[in-house]
Design a protein around this nucleic acid. Structure first.
Lengths: 350, 350
DNA sequence: GTGAAAGCGCTAACAC
DNA sequence: GTGTTAGCGCTTTCAC
């Protein structure tokens, strides 16, 4: 592949002039500009980013590590990122950690090896390692400063890592309170892994709501799943096998809720008449099933959009202190808890 | 960030020894191995990929350009890629072209600038530019050889670009034939943009089936959409407004079919009793709606899995001639064309 | 406005 | 097994 020096020679100028033309850091005479551009197109020259990075310490590449790239939820984050970065030179590298902390560590180290300018991370690290991991994450920035890392969805450690976070405890509490108000007494809770941040926080909200209503928290009503639809399915089947009586299923996310719905269908349980069902995240498939699933909207698009903007700022102002910004959620009532809700399909973004 | 020479000095060895240890290309004494590893961990050293690439001309990074990263279809390709690359050192850079050829060109040029080792591409270039684009795609490989590019889903130009392709014409023809056998006479066809490869090929199959059955091809029964669910919705609404009578809707993909179904629901049309409906791709949401949508399974996971393997081979054997390999599809009958089909949700991979 | 040249951090060829 | 060193393709002083 043609090098800059080849272009320079063909155009009869110096390599510095070609570089100045390409980066736009110094002005180059108009005639030479035209000449250089012509030669570049002729020989299909593309600047070598590796060489550029070696000298300038910038890649304009951002690393994004998310548990499940293939989730519908990520889709929205992705769209936010894309829209935010549309007019910039930034590109993204995506890695799916698959809820595996070892993979997450690998991904971060890969990002640092590739010298990405910053990292967006939805960490799957365990509660107890949060602080230590946060400290490591920001090590190795340019000039001994902290490496720009932005945590999406929850706070890791406000001393080290900036975050765009959700109030997960409130999200869960509000859903549980809603179900209690609806008259439910025995709420089966389908949790994420409780050692993870999101699993811990959301379960906490459920417990808080029950406690406030003076309802005992019964271990057998809490099923630890893994956020997949299949784990939601298993949770309900399992409850039936154990002979547990429940009048509501509260799933940590819509995906589990959809799985739970399948199991309820198979058992010929009427939703919401006999059992109410709630999810969380407001992903599109939650409106495809019937009844449509009551949920909480997580502004994932905003998470992507604001996430990029904030990270970009962090990259460009290396002395910035870590910031924490809350993202607001909103409750969406649908047919799985209220028969009278109208059917709604939002096809707009799909 | 620490450099290799810092590690070398701290460990009291030469920089070459550290490099040899890291790349594993030469054997290093056991004691020194341990010592080097210790120092590396102490100072959080990560090899600089940019510097390595500059010297070795390899990044172990593969560029993937797909029209919609956020599609459910891509999810499966992604999983195939990830599984295939799991034991290798390769990483991926994903770009969504959004069915915009200008963005595709940008993405390819970005990949080449970043010196990816190879490219996986689901091109959205127009039929008429196929050949010219194919030629450009493979330019600029190492040592004047052709750049490793593998086209996913269709053939571009067998002289230049390798491909893992679907027999799109047959896919469409088989669906149309099935509907005709079912007794449908007036099939509304929801097409992709006809100037694109997939739009062209799939429409061709529909036309072939009608021609073989001596049914005239009526322009007003062909709606040009853009593969989105909303365009499927509009197609059906539009047909109603124009007063077109139809007994089947054949959508180019499941997403459009889901949109079409929404419109049919709103018009109180019974599916399949009054109108039959088919999609294509076998994406998960097609089983979430009711009735579940008859479709053709596109082995997208295989596309990813085999795609990576083939591309890796192309990268490692630069003298390989372009290869074309067909990927087989299969018909899946569901409730949207046959009332007697049982409901099936496959939650396994979600 | 333009050019010459140092050097970013690594790999690989070569010497020992 | 280990060390020395040239040089990958660019950016960026510094002269002119």
């Amino acid at each position: 592949m043609a090098r800059m020096i080849d272009v320079a020679r063909k155009a009869g100028v110096s390599i510095a002039t070609v570089s100045n033309y390409l980066t736009g850091k110094k002005h180059v005479g108009l005639e030479k500009q035209r000449l250089i551009q012509k030669v570049i197109e002729e020989c299909g020259y593309e600047v070598n980013i590796a060489a550029r990075c070696l000298k300038s310490n910038r890649t304009y590449n951002i690393g994004v590590a998310i548990p499940e790239i293939s989730s519908v939820y990520f889709t929205q984050i992705f769209n936010g990122l894309r829209d935010a970065a549309d007019d910039t030179d930034y590109t993204f590298s995506f890695v799916s950690t698959n809820f595996d902390f070892a993979k997450e560590k690998q991904a971060i180290s890969q990002f640092k090896r590739s010298r990405v300018d910053g990292i967006l991370l939805n960490s799957c690290c365990e509660m107890k390692n949060k602080r230590e991991w946060a400290k490591k994450l920001v090590s190795g920035g340019n000039g001994g400063k902290s490496f720009p890392v932005l945590s999406l969805e929850y706070n890791m450690d406000s001393n080290y890592v900036s975050a765009l976070y959700l109030d997960n405890v409130s999200i869960s509490r509000e859903i549980a309170e809603y179900l209690l108000e609806k008259g439910c007494k025995d709420i089966l809770y389908i949790s994420a892994k409780q050692s993870t941040i999101v699993g811990h926080e959301r379960l906490k909200g459920y417990k808080e709501a029950l406690a406030a209503a003076h309802i005992p928290i019964r271990k057998e009503y809490i099923f630890e799943g893994n956020l997949s639809s299949f784990s939601g399915y298993k949770a309900v089947c399992d409850a039936f096998e154990r002979g547990i009586i429940f009048d509501a299923v509260m799933a940590v996310n819509d995906q589990s809720a959809i799985g739970a719905l399948k199991a309820l269908h198979e058992k010929k349980i009427k939703v919401p008449d006999e059992v109410m069902l709630t999810g969380c995240d407001n992903i599109f498939p939650g409106t495809l099933v019937s009844p449509q699933i009551t949920t909480v909207n997580i502004p994932a698009y905003t998470l992507g959009l604001e996430g990029f903007k904030l990270l970009q700022q962090m990259i460009e102002e290396p002395d910035m202190k870590p910031v924490q910004k809350k993202i607001v959620h909103s409750f969406i009532e649908r047919q799985s808890t209220n028969k009278n809700c109208e059917s709604e399909w939002n096809l707009a973004r799909w």
